[in-house]
Amino acid sequence: MITATRLRTMQQVSQQSKLTQEIARAQSDISTGRRLNVPSDDPIAAARIAEIRKSQADQTVWSRNLEAAKAIASQADTALGGINDVITRAKELTLSGASQSASPNDRAAIVQELRNLNVTLANYQAQTTPTGQPLFPTDAPLQISGSATFLVAATAKQSDVFDGVLVAHGGTSTLSAIISAAADAVSQDDPTARQTASQISLADIDAAASHLTNQRSAQGVRATQIDSAAEALISSGEQLTEERSSLEDTDVAATVMKLNAKTLSLQAAQQAFAKVNRNTLFDFVS
């Protein structure tokens, strides 16, 4: 009988010790906000959290890539807008220079401004990104990674923007050559020759404008792709964060309920233990 009593006492002490540990763990989970402290707490959840953590690290890199791509794409679009302004101004000047009312001095000023436009054009061609790389590279633009499967170039190749203009008289030309030809046309003293050459230049300038419209449209497609990839990355990141939280974070309401239940159980066990152990040997044999 003494042995049985001793065994029962040991069981009660063990039960109270276990309840105390569970209460301490619940309190820790509430205070830290984390239900997983070591992988052994939930091996399956811990393995999934490790996978999510790796994906989130990858997404951090992809997010930085896409932000850089957005900046380059925006800079390229602004540059293309400026180049388009150069071509628009070239057309205005060529029209003025071809006019019969333009004096030699007027035409000389127009020719000088047209040649200066080529300097502006060269400046756009030589633009660099904040990292010092060519905005319009001579080689194929760098493919920027925005996910495990998404690659995009944030800008166009230099030759695609400044060369390859399909001109009206056949073949291709460059933006610079078209502006130079316009300056040469306006500089001619013979009115008939000037008019003929200017009309050819105006047609080529219109072709250059159409060429730039196509380039700006292509740049807009790149920007849209980058924005879409960034939005998809944000959405995926939110899903991963939510899933990780469900696996890793403490369900405070449920844990508080469990804590209260464990505390009541411990109090009841302690009271029962105290009452039983107040009894003497005569109480048991009476």
Rank of each mutant, 00 (worst) to 15 (best):
T3G: 03
R6W: 11
R8I: 08
R8G: 15
R8V: 07
M10N: 14
M10G: 10
S14Q: 15
L19I: 02
G33Y: 01
N37H: 14
D42W: 07
I44R: 07
E51Q: 13
Q56I: 09
Q59H: 15
T60D: 11
W62N: 05
L66W: 01
E67F: 00
Q75G: 12
D77M: 08
D77Q: 13
G81P: 07
D85A: 14
S96E: 12
S99R: 03
A102K: 02
P104K: 10
A109L: 13
L117R: 00
N118Y: 08
V119E: 15
L121Y: 01
L121Q: 05
Y124M: 15
L135R: 04
T138Y: 10
L142W: 10
G146P: 06
T149V: 14
F150V: 15
A154I: 00
A168S: 15
H169T: 14
L175H: 02
S176T: 14
A182Y: 11
P191L: 07
T196C: 05
S201T: 12
D204P: 11
I205D: 06
S210N: 15
T213E: 13
G220Y: 00
I226H: 11
I234P: 03
E238C: 06
E243A: 12
S245D: 03
E248K: 02
V256F: 04
T280H: 01
T280R: 00
F284C: 03
